[in-house]
Design a protein around this nucleic acid. Structure first.
Length: 410
RNA sequence: CGGGCUGUAGUGUAACGGCAGCACGAGACGUUUGGGACGUUUUAGUCCGAGUUCGAAUCUCGGCAGCCCGACCA
């Protein structure tokens, strides 16, 4: 993409009134636009990043054997009444002219359970799992921290259906491992944290927590074996011995980027979702639900990966891999290099603005935070080379123009 | 939902109750190009509504909006 065609611009100043790093940097660099508190537009750069995050999640969900679908956002009152969740204060409710009442979907156990009823009758139909990536709406009393806690946000929600607790437990463990893989690919160091099940279950659930001062949660964790518990439920002693190994328990603020729940039969009983086993006996289906917030993940990445000059995206989620800059009359050669890089499958953002000084282009490159910066100038062309620099790393190297595609495609 | 703070050009900021100014940005022309370059010139603003006052960006009330703290957060 050429910068001259990107309609967004960076801001020289950090937005006033924003104290959280993700809000400051993502707005300043033109990744998101705040329409209202907790309600954001994902601008072209941000949308590309979000789609990179989604693509990684999709790959891992598909690898689990889950299939993707898309459920409605407008969810009729009858669904919520069936599970006794109509009187939930985070739900946006609305009524149309004819008096039909809806809640905007803030989670979709009810909808998927009803759908499953239509297609699942026998043990032969189990187990199965399905997921979606969709905007969720939650009427948060207080949206905060940029895109970390929004009223409208993106969520990947996965639901699984099993014949018994043992099979749920097996899949639950698979999802746990799958989530760890997702976060590892996203460049995030997530702790699997034991937490309370809230209204869903009396058992522990597991949250995926990334240490960050911007987080709202507090976890007690062992760096050595990575055992971790949420402050809500823990009796681990700060500075004390880890009960699982000989490590020490630390305390830190953290961002919850994912969670997994064993739902049991709460929803299948509410909707009479049953199956018939080999003996002809009818039994309630055992369910699980599992969530990751891609938009919150994006905010978390901004919180974790930045420096005083701007963002520092991991390559797996950067909107582009390369920020290409043409200086002093090298535009013609830069355009060729731009094309060559794309031919090699390298995603390039080309700063082709001819009315901007070098300093401004450098500042924007740093702010936007793509992993690699390539500069073409008369100086480098004298060496038949371009300058390649990694964001956040000292030093640079000259790479011959003829090798640039091969060098950067890796 | 309780509490605190704040709303001035696109952005960031100034102005005692008394002429709304500055910088950047944006537009035009020219010179520039290795860390937000320079000259000339143009452009654009007091969140909305009431009230007090000779006079309101400034004081009062209401609304709307944002940030922060707390409560809440399957």
């Amino acid at each position: 993409m050429k910068l001259s065609r990107l309609f967004t611009k960076t801001e020289k100043e950090t937005p006033k009134d924003e104290t959280s790093v993700n809000a400051q940097l993502l707005e300043q660099a033109g990744f998101v636009y705040k329409n209202n508190s907790g309600i954001y537009t994902y601008l072209p750069l941000g949308w590309r990043t979000l789609n990179k995050i989604n693509a990684i999640i999709r790959e891992e969900m598909n690898a689990l054997g889950a299939t993707e679908l898309l459920m409605p956002t407008l969810v009729n009152k009858r669904y919520w009444e069936a599970s006794e969740r109509w009187d939930v204060d985070v739900m946006y409710k609305l009524k149309d002219e004819t008096g039909h009442e809806f809640g905007l979907g803030w989670t979709h156990e009810e909808v998927i359970t009803e759908i499953a009823k239509r297609y699942v009758q026998s043990y032969k139909d189990l187990p199965f799992s399905a997921y979606q990536i969709q905007s969720k709406f939650r009427n948060e009393a207080r949206a905060k921290s940029g895109i970390l806690r929004g009223r409208e946000f993106l969520m990947k929600d996965l639901y699984s259906f099993h014949r018994d607790e043992a099979d749920l437990q097996r899949f639950y463990q698979d999802v746990l491992n799958s989530y760890l893989k997702v976060f590892q690919r996203l460049g995030l160091d997530a702790y699997v944290t034991e937490a309370s099940g809230g209204a869903f279950t009396k058992e522990y659930t597991h949250e995926f927590q990334v240490l960050s001062e911007a987080g709202e949660d507090t976890i007690f964790y062992c760096e050595k074996c990575r055992y971790s518990q949420n402050k809500e439920i823990t009796n681990l002693p700060q500075g004390g011995k880890c009960p699982k190994c000989d490590g020490t328990i630390n305390v830190g603020k953290s961002i919850e980027v994912g969670n997994i729940f064993r739902l049991g039969t709460r929803f299948s009983k509410a909707f009479n979702l049953n199956f018939v086993d080999e003996k002809g006996e009818s039994k309630p289906i055992v369910m699980g639900s599992y969530g990751i917030g891609p938009s919150r993940v994006m905010g978390t990445l901004a919180e974790v990966f930045h420096d005083k000059s701007g963002l520092l995206w991991p390559e797996s989620v950067a909107p582009f891999k390369v920020y290409l800059i043409a200086l002093d009359g090298a535009a013609k050669e830069a355009a060729k290099i731009y094309q060559r890089l794309w031919d090699h499958g390298v995603e390039v953002l080309y700063d082709d603005r001819d009315d901007k000084g070098a300093g401004e282009k450098f500042a924007d490159a740093d702010l936007i935070g793509l992993p690699i910066r390539v500069i073409v100038s008369s100086k480098t062309l004298k060496e038949k080379s371009v300058e390649v620099k990694r964001r956040g790393k000292p030093g640079m190297e000259l790479v011959p123009v003829k090798d640039i595609g091969k060098t950067l495609e890796k």
